[in-house]
Amino acid sequence: MLGRTASGLFWMSRYLERSENTARLIDAGFHLALTRPSEAAPNEWASVLSTSGADEAYKAKYDGYEGLNVVDFLLRDTANPGSVLSMVHMARENARQVRTALTREAFEATNEAWMTLRDLLAKPVSERDLPSVLNMIRQQSALVRGAIHGTMLRNDVYNFLRIGTFLERADNTARILDVKYYVLLPSIAHVGAALDNVQWEKILRAVSAHRAYRWLNGEGVTARGISEFLILDRQFPRSLAFSVAKVTENLNHLARDYGDRPESLVHAESMSAMFDRQTIAAITEIGLHGFLREFIRDHYGLAGTIASDYRFHE
């Protein structure tokens, strides 16, 4: 496989994953804005923007955090490279670039996702239509994932797609937690301290985990419990530990196929091992913010090593 193809697959799945996560973030923000007194909403929208890394670009364009402006910027502003529309476009451009590596179904699902969302996001989305638009974004994303899952050979092509997905996912989950760390902070050290209802709901919604969390933990919602769930849970598919394990697993497949043991695998394995030993008490000790910052940095380095190990660029 060409290094450029590996890169295209990796980025295609990163963009797809991120567009879906951005839709979730918007959903969570929207929910909060509906359930909160109106003076609190701008703060929430500001934190949504900073989670998606679009705060600066937004401020350059708008004054104040008006809900529909934020939604428009994150959903369909083509001048914002992090908007859902821009990212689905980039995912599709990468898919075109590597279409010989994809099955016809996988390519067509991606292409159709883009065509559908391009039409859906051609005009500003009203408050009334927002829930169904967000739903459609998640649905299109699920269709692409389904086509990939159901038709692709489990070879290097698949591995690069999966690596992109989980690298992006871990990064997104870490950012969601980090932006909200100050909300969790006062109570995280105190086992069992109750948390602002709406806040925790938002964090869990942003990773589609509010149901899963309740299933596993009943009504006992604590800052510590949420942090543990999103960082260390082995079953939750959007936790850091889960994502890192998946990246490691796919790098291992590649190493076995190619018969080597590159630096990126060594790096990923050491990250996995760290999560095996890690406890929420220890993370609290280090400080949640510090832990997440360190993770994001380390993880960013891993992505770079993968790119150079597999010759994404010359």
């Binding site: 060409l2 590996a6 010759r311 010359e314």
Partner: peptide, 16 residues
């Protein structure tokens, strides 16, 4: 940009 001359042949940059 995937190609270059390597040992008198035209070669493509693969993941390996």
């Amino acid at each position: 940009h995937d190609l270059r001359v390597v040992d008198g042949r035209i070669a493509m940059r693969t993941t390996q």
